[in-house]
Amino acid sequence: MGGFAEGVGFFVKGLGWVARHPRWWLFGLIPALIAFVLYAAALVWLAMNAGDVAAWVTPFADDWGWRGLFRTLVGIVIFIAGLFLSLITYTAVTLAIGEPFYEKLSEKVEEEFGPVPGGDQPFWSSLFRSIKDSLMTLVYVLMLTIPLFILGFIPFIGQTIVPVLGALVSGFFLTVELTALAMERRGLRRKDRFAILRSNKGSALGFGVVIFLTFLIPFVAIIAMPGAVAGATLLVRTRLTPPPLMR
């Protein structure tokens, strides 16, 4: 429990850091805002066209007398699935869009505690690696969350156990995404990063779950994203990074 609370505390510290550095908070808002606009446009389009999408995926229901009701229900499920997918991919997409922004923000956080580990990496090389790692992480997320999404329609289980498991899974992978910048700076690749986070599950879950729950509040994801990046950097530097890699 102590590790979980410690993880929550790092998110609070990250928010405190950007509160003390409003210029960097505004800087970090740019990619989060761009991603939000893209997602909002996609969800609005899906809401307006859910019926057509439902008709397209259910051609077998053309001759059903109750096809209208059936396709309305299918359309609702499609929109809920789109909303669910947006929640679990928003951070990865925002980090991919904002790679240069968040790299600078993360470095600025580290500068307050001493020399920044690692050296400058070619932009395109780090961007492509970040996208590749994000896609791999997304595959893992979908493998775990799609079954949970389906189980969510089961009475009682879907309203009690599934939301808790969903928050834990989503929270862990949010930590994976957010700590990637600071860990890559230390020369750690995806396999090594996962190993470190698994060995610090309490802190990783506490940090990610509180961010996941915070991001469920409309518009808060935009405001809190710079703080999440700053908190992840502090988490890596002071808690997760093995002593031999500290500079």
Rank of each mutant, 00 (worst) to 15 (best):
P117L: 13
R198I: 03
R189V: 12
A54Y: 11
M225N: 12
V8W: 09
T145Y: 00
E99P: 04
A55N: 05
L168E: 06
T91Q: 14
F128M: 10
A230K: 01
E6L: 15
F70W: 15
L87S: 13
F27G: 08
A19S: 11
I80K: 04
F156Y: 11
Y39I: 10
L142M: 02
R189N: 14
V220K: 01
V169F: 04
L245I: 08
F10E: 04
R129G: 13
Y90G: 14
S126V: 06
R193S: 02
R71S: 06
L85T: 12
V209Q: 13
I146H: 00
A204P: 10
Y90E: 12
L148S: 00
A5K: 15
V139C: 00
V44D: 13
L29I: 07
G98I: 01
P115Q: 11
P243R: 13
L29S: 10
L69A: 14
G187H: 10
F4D: 04
A47V: 00
A204L: 07
D133V: 09
L83Q: 09
Y39M: 10
W56T: 11
G75N: 05
E184V: 03
L43W: 02
V44W: 09
I34G: 08
P147G: 06
G3K: 11
D133G: 00
A230H: 01
W45Y: 11
F215K: 07
K132W: 07
T179S: 12
A41C: 15
G3W: 14
I157T: 11
R129V: 07
R20A: 15
F215P: 03
A54P: 07
P155L: 05
F10N: 08
I34Q: 13
A19W: 11
M246E: 05
V209R: 08
F215T: 04
D63P: 03
V77A: 10
T238N: 15
I196W: 02
M136W: 12
T241L: 11
